[in-house]
Design a protein around this nucleic acid. Structure first.
Lengths: 390, 390
DNA sequence: CATGTATAGTTTGGACAGCGTACAAAATGC
DNA sequence: GCATTTTGTACGCTGTCCAAACTATACATG
């Protein structure tokens, strides 16, 4: 006879559903539909979602009461009563913060991710004062937009952080400390603060603000000082055990290659990141490299032979790494974020050719981020939206 | 004024929830708890799930009416009414089919995955008749267990198949055609047939039959003629765009290496699969390789120097590949399935040392499948269970 | 043996969700 | 004015979970 189990037991997350669960699910669905398809009427929401018009009415009533959406203009139809279009509440806004090794930007955006105002943060010489400068810049923006009501602050940064934990735990390419930035901003502004890796954030952003409906599998590759990837799979971000999933950039590509910031040798990012591109230029031309990678891209665009060659070499390595990603995850789409996309017509085909080289299965679609240089900023907005209503 | 949208629109899956949704969710939760913790009382189910005892009673009533579970024995407590333990219905059974390049096995198991009967299928010389032989073997097993009621057939095979599609689309290591095996078995037996890649199936199996509760991130690496990986992330299998996710085995590891069955060169599986182990033995000893990999492992266990060296070399490459997986996905656990696990005490440490070599973050736990050689068979059961009630 | 206590499992009423139908509101055309 | 068409709302129904009351069962104790 078995002894009584009486398990001591706790689930990490609540797994059981209550009778409030459908409302949560449908509420998120409806809000997302309004967000992506605004302006849209209740009747169309019903058609699109598969829910009844009556149900939609109740859910929308909630969303309006909580000031997420507004009744907007009225439409015209050949027959029948005119629909009232719903739209996101323009009064509500989000602070987006893009922390980048070479430049940090802060912005105000609306719930739809549209950038209302944007400033580059002048960082002081003393890196310890960086966080204070950022907070000052945020507070200035909030003060300048007193007509808005702010919902939160989104931070996208090059590094990994366990979503539970406060501080980033892996940021080899950032030269100033961001420890406790999250709680400091929260204390100063009183707003909810969401922080995540740039590539993760960009993946969310593509899903939230992109036009591909129901995208389920997508990998974003952020090519900057290093290379980070954000994996969106089964309709969710793949975070891994400590939030460390997506470090394709630190997969060994060259045996006994260059020493990487992570301590290993020959990582993909040592041969395919912006730094690698600059190094190739130096090696090939014998001249000093341009001040930054954007300048190198400009050089290539003006047909500088060495610049083109250097970026082609970088593109080849990029493509080879993308082939790894395609084999490993078979996403339907790979999106590139970074300065290299500024010259996509020159190097996109090179990257894609290498990606498709000898591929044993259908290669994923490859495209640059639809956002260009604001991709990282908008991604920070997605972080807040994702927590607020998803 | 915007024109009326009236979107023509269909979701791939239904995204909206109805008031029946919580019951579906909780039913699966309760069934899974019974499966993993049987025997268990209703009261303990309530404690463990967080649902009310009354709700549990209703759900269990459903499950008993549909003959998934049974009221079983009675427990004893120091005080109070004795609990009645619930257990899975032993009458119900599943056919498990393990298709393997060197040997195909078919078995009868109960809902808990316990193997009731098991036969190796003698495949005819003519590979075209293989499917017919398998079907005959299945029907024999069903006839011999007329006391059971069969719920479905699970097939785990070395290859990828879009879950929607009928035929496997990528099986470079299988030398006989399995096209339309799914529908043929369905027609012959009348049972539901679920088919998936071995590694995917084993990942499900670890989650379904393993003892780690609430495991969310796990990668199974199946080391056989080739290498396949099954990725369990965010509590679901990661399938990718065409069911092709998980082909880490075909990531390039040696530039201009050996030609692989997939058409590329230097894939991980060309240097770390069973075939590679046999090749290393041949190269190192100058002798002909053993008849199969299991024999090579036996040799190593009896201290044959060349066999040990060959498998150590294979282990090193295995570990190097696992390091890729750890960087890319940061799973909390990596599980190895395959004959190499028979000598885990010899080679497990070698693999793990290479996995941890120069790792920039905490390496995942590494362990052999808790099932040993029946892992693949039991995995086929998990496929059926996963579709039936998950 | 009666009583009190502890635990398992069931019953019942209430709250809440989505569905489906009916209906009011609003616009157009004849 | 009236039929028609479409939007958006109101109301009753069913399904679900929860909370508390209730019943059943067992044991310890005096």
């Amino acid at each position: 006879m078995p002894t009584p189990p009486t398990h001591a037991f706790t689930f990490t997350r609540k797994l059981s559903a209550s009778n409030k669960t459908p409302r949560q699910i449908n509420r998120n669905l409806v809000f997302n539909l309004i967000r992506t398809r605004q302006p849209i009427s209740r009747a169309d929401l019903a058609r699109v979602s598969g829910l009844q018009r009556s149900t939609i009415s109740l859910i929308v009533e909630d969303l309006i009461r909580e000031r997420w959406v507004l009744d907007g203009s009225t439409g015209r139809l050949p027959r029948g009563r005119h629909p009232t279009f719903l739209e996101l509440n323009h009064q509500r806004a989000v602070i987006a913060l893009d922390i980048h090794p070479s430049q940090t930007t802060v912005a105000v955006t609306d719930l739809g991710g549209k950038i209302v105002a944007q400033n580059v943060v002048a960082l002081p010489n003393d890196p310890k004062k960086a966080v204070a400068s950022i907070i000052a810049a945020i507070n200035r923006l909030i003060a300048n937009h007193s007509d808005k009501s702010f919902d939160g602050v989104g931070i996208s940064l090059p590094g990994r952080a366990d979503p539970q934990l406060e501080k980033p735990i892996f940021a080899p390419n950032l030269n100033w400390p961001v420890q406790s930035i999250k709680s400091k901003i929260h204390r100063s502004t009183g707003l909810r603060v969401e922080m995540d890796n740039v590539a993760n954030a960009c993946a969310l952003s593509e899903v939230w603000f992109g036009d591909s409906d129901g995208l389920q599998d997508l990998v974003v590759v952020n090519v900057s000082e290093g290379i980070g990837t954000g994996i969106f799979s089964n309709g969710r971000l793949l975070r891994g055990a400590n939030g460390m999933a997506g470090e394709f950039g630190h997969i060994e590509m060259e045996r006994d290659g260059l020493l990487c910031g992570c301590g290993s040798r020959g990582c993909w990012e040592t041969v395919a990141s912006n730094r690698a591109g600059l190094r190739y230029y130096q090696e090939m031309s014998g001249r000093r490299a341009p001040v930054n990678f954007a300048a190198l891209v400009k050089l290539a665009q003006s047909d500088d032979h060495d610049a083109v060659k250097a970026l082609e070499r970088m593109s080849q390595y990029l493509g080879r790494g993308l082939r790894m990603i395609a084999s490993a995850l078979a996403p339907s789409e790979i999106v590139i974020v970074g300065d290299i996309t500024a010259a996509w017509h020159l190097f996109g085909p090179k990257i894609e050719a290498e990606l498709k080289h000898n591929a044993f299965s259908k290669a994923p679609r490859l495209r640059p981020s639809f956002e260009g240089n604001t991709a990282r900023l908008r991604s920070a907005v997605a972080l807040v939206m994702n927590q607020g209503l998803a």
